[in-house]
Design a protein around this nucleic acid. Structure first.
Length: 207
DNA sequence: AGCCAGATTTTCT
DNA sequence: GAAAATCTGGCTA
């Protein structure tokens, strides 16, 4: 079951780019349960991805909808690269670029279940509440010390930030509307692991 | 547990 | 100049 304490330090093999679904919606679903690995000079932090949102082709809510700009250029890289943006004057959020190269679609990572390096996350977040560490895009970026420096990183190879194979099996995946946007918000493009305590958003969206 | 307002700055119009 | 893929604290119950 998802809430069982996952064993730390199993092999952390990066995901292969060819295994990432090209379709962005499929990618968002595929990423649930995968491991996000953050290497810093202070040590390693890892977490299971438990909540994602897809921003697909022709989607007015997508940052790449109106074409490439200096801000969103990493979203147009080949799939599996990091797109980090700054929002509301104080938060960073992490996306995985999706689709074909130049497409400008991607997947927002909305929540993690912390596994390794929890002490360091508590320090970065200045809280000890395990449920407030990585629940929500801004919080997880702060916990893992992710900012513009990580923008454009290849997440399919070992480095300061990458995606890796799951460490424990993934439970059933639920689908809901997206959170925090005004355009096309009702499209069912948000994915989450059912029953996981580390997902963000109101309860009725997590069933 | 749920609702609301305020914070704060980048980005593009 | 306005909007923005959010979080926090303070309120009500």
């Amino acid at each position: 079951m998802p809430q069982k304490t996952p064993r730390a330090n199993k092999s952390l093999r990066p995901l292969r780019r060819k295994d990432l679904p090209i379709d962005t919606e499929s990618l968002a679903r595929y990423l649930i349960g995968k491991t996000l690995v953050r290497e810093t000079p202070q040590g390693r932090m890892t977490g299971r991805i438990v909540e994602t949102e897809a921003y697909v082709q022709g989607d007015a809510a997508g940052h790449g909808y109106k074409g490439e700009t200096p801000r969103n250029r990493s979203l147009f890289l080949e799939r599996g690269h990091a797109y980090v943006y700054f929002i509301y004057g104080m938060h960073f959020a992490l996306n995985v670029s999706g689709g074909e190269k130049g497409e400008g679609t991607g997947v927002l990572i909305r929540a993690l279940e912390p596994i390794e390096g929890i002490a360091q996350m508590e320090k970065n977040r200045r809280t000890k509440n395990p449920h407030e560490l990585t629940k929500g895009p801004g919080r997880l970026a702060q916990a893992l010390k992710i900012d513009k420096q990580e923008d454009g990183i290849d997440l399919c190879k070992k480095g300061p930030l990458y995606l890796a194979e799951p460490q424990i099996p993934t439970a059933e995946i639920g689908v809901s509307k997206r959170i925090g946007i005004t355009k096309e918000a009702d499209r069912p493009l948000r994915f989450h692991e059912k029953g996981n305590k580390h997902t963000s958003g109101p309860k009725h969206l997590n069933q």
